[in-house]
Design a binder for these strands. Structure first.
Lengths: 169, 169
DNA sequence: TACGGTTTGTTCAAATTTGAACCATGCGCT
DNA sequence: AGCGCATGGTTCAAATTTGAACAAACCGTA
């Protein structure tokens, strides 16, 4: 850390631009999801994470880590999604304490119906502003940043490392 | 829009990396501010915006736009900050309806005391992962994105365009 | 097998956020 | 001046989020 603890003007500009854009994007996303599917963004994130998990199911704690939400927060949202019929709770075979959150058929259909509109927003307001190289840079940078903050983010593709027990296979 | 409405795998990777990193960063920031200053991130943002406004004061609505928070949300937070003695409300000279949120001396000192720790987090977990060119790209991209979403973001320096009626004069 | 330390998920209270409803004031036009 | 509509802030109820406290189940070791 030879850098000063504060930020240069260029860095501050970058940070402020990021901050504003991310807030605005979150708003747009929230608005679109609410209008088109009656979902909140956290709920949508839960559904997508489940949809790409083996068996469309995942342990509560692991899911909370992926979505970056508190345990109690996830308990609440899974309750909501259960009421909506998009998710079910199932016992965990290997661990008596564990609960699996399982995406229902209806949940999957809801996701298929909702994803295009959602991704269109993400594309229009964020992704389309990146050139190809910039997109690559950003992916790499954000992965590094996430890793530095202790994310459960599997590396790009092939790689050794401590590697998570991940749902490979 | 010749692009498909959905995202390619590369784009999706970028989006997921961004999403995870931004969530984690928000967490870290919230944690640091709470521990070191008893502030939430929105509160800190309000203080900084006020500190760099002429007269350390700003109209409620304008402030809400900058911080990207609802009007009622701002009313609430200004109330909290007022209780803490960091902000005061003052009448608006030019508009009888208007309220100016004003940063107090104590508020300014709180900010000076808190900023280094906060910016250190921003630097360590986000900014330091960018190279110089990448930082520039990101600033440009995020400004474009924010503008596309209707931000109150003044362009880099001199520039014409439709230009906001801004608080000039 | 019994014991201590972990991990899991839920419950609970408290804080925060949002949008709708609501007055009060400003502003353009007649 | 008088009207009609847009703006500025607050109030209110409802939804969401978090951390702390808890009970149950796991695990390694004696």
């Amino acid at each position: 850390m030879t850098e000063p603890p504060w930020l240069s003007e260029r860095e501050l500009d970058a940070w402020l631009a990021y901050l504003t854009a991310s807030h605005l994007l979150e708003r747009r996303i929230e608005e679109q999801l609410k209008a088109d599917a009656g979902l909140t963004h956290p709920q949508y994130e839960i559904l997508t994470r489940l949809s790409s998990a083996p068996g469309q199911r995942m342990r509560m704690t692991e899911l909370a880590r992926l979505v970056v939400v508190s345990k109690s927060g996830l308990t609440y949202q899974i309750g909501q999604l259960e009421k909506a019929g998009l998710v079910e709770r199932a016992a965990c075979p290997s661990d008596e304490r564990g609960i699996m959150a399982v995406l229902t058929g209806e949940g999957m259909r809801c996701l298929e119906r909702t994803a295009p509109g959602h991704l269109a927003v993400v594309r229009a307001f964020l992704i389309d502003h990146f050139g190809p190289d910039e997109l690559t840079s950003m992916t790499r940078i954000m992965r590094k940043a996430a890793a530095a903050m202790g994310a459960a983010v599997p590396p790009p593709a092939g790689e050794a490392g401590p590697h998570t027990p991940g749902p490979r296979t």
